[in-house]
Design a protein around this nucleic acid. Structure first.
Length: 561
RNA sequence: CGGGGCGUAGCGCAGCCUGGUAGCGCGCUUGCUUUGGGAGCAAGAAGUCGGCGGUUCAAAUCCGCCCGCCCCGACCA
């Protein structure tokens, strides 16, 4: 491709609205342009990257026997009503009416639609297993689109769905996806982790997420050298135990000391010796949730126990405890109490349910009763629950997820098959997603330097960036033209920059675009007949005879990829 | 949805406080020169100052309402 013909509007300056490196660079390098909040136009270079990623995904999905289909983006509301999600999802789903007044939705995912299809077409155990996938647009009215292409309202997703006769068969489909996903993410060149994830409201089902480490990510994962890896939504750890004081209840005045920090300073004790009491409302029921003072509540863990909940308001706190926030505690409260496991066996200071007072020497289990569950958010440096080594916590971009769905969709939509005994059984399903744009963004985040993007070979928009320094020089120009033809003949994807602009601008663009290899033809090449080759990552340089350059670059790319 | 910020030429910004001729850098057009790290000189094009309403002799500037975009939080099958 000749740069003079390619539409790639590069920018010298960062766009004002961008924060994340991938956002700044994807706009500056001319990959994308923003249409509105969370809506992006993919320009030629951006689309090439996306298509490369999609090709890798297709190859690996096909390799496990998955079959590509394409489903509509516009769905009748009725199907979503049948699974209950029409009501449970809320504002995140785009809703509209067609001219006949029928309620419709824009698909945020396709479980309902594919299960509708399966319910009509899969009848016998002989038809199973099946894995169907698509690479299709999803629409979600995100509360807050952000970070460029990382979180958008319209995005492409590879979503596949498996249909099996039983849990064992589902395990096999799940395992096949794990293998395909490992190949896909490895081939795209990004760094990633597979972590345990919260299956959400799916009950005991299994779920994993594929996470690309990056400070621009929105999730955090706990990682251990022993292989333990989990989303912080469900990660657990063994907390260090503080030295406990003597038990024995004693009320102490703590005027104006409401926060853990204030109380701990006022009483001059370790925050780990305080209990943080939080009043939440699960529907109409008040629940007191207790966490050690140095810990944080992991709300997703509490949501598993309570379902939907919200923090109690100022008035509700006073109504149920008799005190203001900051002075509440578990003693003599006749409401449901949930305590984090780390409180068992300790001696703590708690709010007295009386403004301006706390109570010391409280022994959970003796002075109050509560349900004990793991409720705290894992912190870096805590001991791994499996092996005891210190946990790392890293921020990550979710690039893929895999779920065992079971019969969550097949039952309400009547997707059943007849088994060998002629009995009707619900199809056991799995659902598996990948966000190609997030892979691209993660690659930018993980490898970019101060000059621009550094693409992994497999997903670079072009493999080679050929720079002709002086197009007006007929000798240089002839060399570059020949080299361009040679490299294309060798099967290389070449971006040939023969534009009549200053050399500095071309080099800067080449570095911004981030193709893995740059080949320069200038006066030095004209003098000695050698093409200069530079690796974008690391900046290593070498020279090839003009005639040997194409093959030399092919070899280099192999080493890099 | 709560909190904060921003909206002036294609892009990045100044001007607003203290009302009176709309400005800078980059980019763009034309010409000449230049050509291995975002060239130089000269000439030029380009703005309903986000929108509507109000105050005023006069509004980019002051006031009100609305819209859009970004950031933090909540949310994220």
């Amino acid at each position: 491709m000749r740069a003079s013909r390619l539409f790639f509007p590069t920018l010298k300056e960062d766009p004002a609205e961008a924060e994340a490196a991938s956002h700044k660079l994807s706009v500056r390098a001319g990959l994308v342009r923003q249409l509105a909040a969370g809506l992006y136009i993919y320009l030629p270079l951006g689309l090439r990257v996306l298509e490369k990623i999609n090709t890798i995904i297709r190859e690996e999905m096909n390799a496990i026997g998955a079959q590509e289909i394409s489903m509509p983006v516009l769905h009748p509301a009725e199907i979503w009503q049948q699974t209950g999600r029409y009501d449970s999802i809320g504002a995140e789903m785009f809703r509209l009416r067609d001219r006949g007044g029928r309620d419709m939705v824009l698909g945020m995912t396709h479980e309902e639609i594919i299960t509708w299809l399966a319910s009509r077409e899969l009848r016998s155990y002989r038809d199973l297993p099946q894995v169907w996938y698509q690479i299709q647009t999803k629409l979600r009215d995100e509360a807050r689109p952000k970070s460029g292409i990382l979180r958008t309202r319209e995005f492409i997703m590879k979503d596949s769905y498996s249909f099996d006769v039983d849990e064992d068969a589902l395990d096999r489909s799940y395992q096949l996806h794990i293998e395909a996903y490992n190949r896909i993410f490895t081939r795209t060149g990004i760094q990633y982790y597979m972590v345990e994830s919260d299956p959400g409201m799916m009950g005991g089902a299994t779920a994993h997420e594929y996470m690309a480490p990056s400070p621009a990510g929105e999730d955090e994962v706990a990682l251990c050298g022993c292989g333990y890896a989990a989303n912080l939504e469900l990660a657990c750890s063994q907390p260090d135990l503080p030295g406990y004081p003597e038990p024995g209840l004693e009320e102490v005045a703590t005027p104006e000391a409401r926060t853990i920090e204030q109380v701990s300073n006022f009483l001059d004790i370790d925050p780990a010796l305080l209990i943080k009491s939080l009043l939440v409302m699960a529907g109409d029921e008040p629940v007191l949730v207790m966490i050690r003072g140095d810990q944080q509540l992991q709300e997703s863990k509490l949501a598993h126990k309570l379902g939907e909940f919200r923090p109690a308001g100022e008035d509700e706190i006073r109504e149920h405890t008799g005190a203001g926030a900051g002075f509440i505690g578990p003693l003599s409260l006749e409401i449901r109490k949930i305590a984090d496991q780390s409180l068992a066996g300790g001696v703590f200071t708690v709010g007295a349910n009386r403004d301006g007072y706390h109570i010391k020497g409280v022994v959970p289990g003796q002075d109050f009763q509560a349900e004990y569950h793991d409720m705290r958010r894992v912190k870096a440096g805590e001991a791994c629950a499996r092996c005891g080594a210190r946990l790392r916590v890293e921020r990550v971009i979710e690039v893929g997820n895999i779920f065992k769905l079971g019969t969550k969709y097949s039952e309400p939509l009547g997707a059943t098959y007849l088994d060998q005994n002629g009995r009707e059984q619900p199809i056991i399903m799995g659902s598996y997603g990948i966000g190609p744009a997030r892979i691209a963004a993660a690659a930018i985040e993980q490898y970019a330097d101060e000059k621009g993007i550094i693409w992994p070979v497999s997903i670079a928009p072009f493999q080679v960036h050929l720079v002709l320094v002086q197009p007006a020089d007929s000798q240089q120009s002839a060399m570059a033209e020949k080299l361009n033809a040679d490299m294309m003949a060798a099967g290389l994807e070449v971006l040939y920059d023969e534009r009549d602009i200053s050399p500095g601008a071309k080099f800067a663009d080449a570095e911004l675009l981030g193709c893995p290899v740059r080949v320069t033809i200038g006066k030095r090449a004209a003098a000695d007949g050698m093409a200069e080759v530079q690796i974008r990552s690391g900046g290593e340089e070498c020279k090839f005879e003009l005639g040997a350059t194409a093959q030399g670059v092919v070899r280099l790319l192999k080493e890099l990829g």
